[in-house]
């Protein structure tokens, strides 16, 4: 009875403490750049009305979703092909290593040349930044399929599409998810900066607008909202991951108990 209660207290104590400190430390602030937390919080509902959520947050999220999904599909598909053939892998490796090493944000000006400044550009930027971690992790995962498992499948006549679906992709799924997780944080970064660069709506655009108009409390609410969004997306991701990779976490836990 006491343990869960203690755990709850421990989990809440620090956040509450931090918020309290922020609240009181900023309470009498006259610094325009650091408004009192009270002001930020009271501004929040005024700024992020339903209308604004629909007009700015939703488009951002849709672009993120589209780019991320495209990157996931493309990355897994290409990664499976490259990972399955030793020679293809050897041919592609140096090029992939280079392309992965390019910091994704510099793709924004490049892709703007091709796709202008519309939604296509933003989706393309997000997709082209997110694809590398997915692709490279898929290659590693596909390559590392256990030979015994692979021969067992062959012995039972599990080949072709069934092998891909039941053996290769499942076996690579822990690595694929590692890639997807890295891609998610890159995707959020690219979503924001592609909108900061050139846009007429979206979260990144709005926050920069606030900053340029010196609507400082508004800007702070935007930062809070972005943080909240990042947190929520990571929670959703974890839920999905726990469902899909339940077997993997169990396997790891059991092999840790008896090495």
């Amino acid at each position: 009875m006491k343990r869960p209660a203690l755990r709850l207290v421990l989990a809440l104590a620090l956040p509450v403490l931090l918020v309290t400190v922020w609240w009181f430390a900023s309470a009498g602030s006259t610094d325009v750049y650091r408004p009192p937390l009270r002001t930020i919080l009271t501004t929040f509902p005024d700024v992020w009305t339903g209308e604004r959520l629909r007009a700015d947050v939703l488009p951002s999220l849709l672009r993120l979703l589209a780019g991320y999904a495209a990157a996931a599909v493309l990355g897994v598909a290409l990664g499976t092909v490259i990972g399955s053939y030793r020679r293809v892998r050897a041919v592609c490796e140096p090029v992939l290593e280079f392309l992965r090493a390019v910091p994704p944000p510099v793709l924004v000006p490049v892709i703007m040349l091709f796709a202008g400044i519309g939604d296509t550009m933003k989706v393309a930027v997000i997709a082209s930044g997110c694809v590398w971690p997915v692709l490279l992790n898929t290659v590693e995962g596909v390559r590392a399929v256990d030979p015994v498992l692979s021969e067992t499948a062959r012995g039972y006549g599990i080949t072709g599409a069934a092998r891909l679906r039941h053996v290769v992709l499942r076996s690579a799924s822990p690595q694929i998810f590692t890639g997807l997780r890295q891609a998610l944080s890159i995707g959020i970064i690219l979503m924001v900066i592609s909108e900061m660069f050139a846009a007429s709506n979206g979260l990144g655009f709005t926050i920069v607008q606030f900053q340029r108009q010196f609507a400082i409390p508004g800007m702070w609410t935007g930062i809070l909202l972005l943080g909240l969004l990042g947190f929520l997306l990571s929670v959703v991701f974890q839920l999905v991951e726990r469902r899909v990779l339940g077997w993997y976490h169990g396997l790891r836990a059991s092999s840790r108990r008896s090495p």
Binding site: V148, L149, T152, S173, W247, Y248
Partner: peptide, 11 residues
């Protein structure tokens, strides 16, 4: 196979 741990599909 001998390696039961690796011949069963853990997922």
């Amino acid at each position: 196979f001998q390696e039961y741990g690796r011949s069963l599909f853990p997922w």
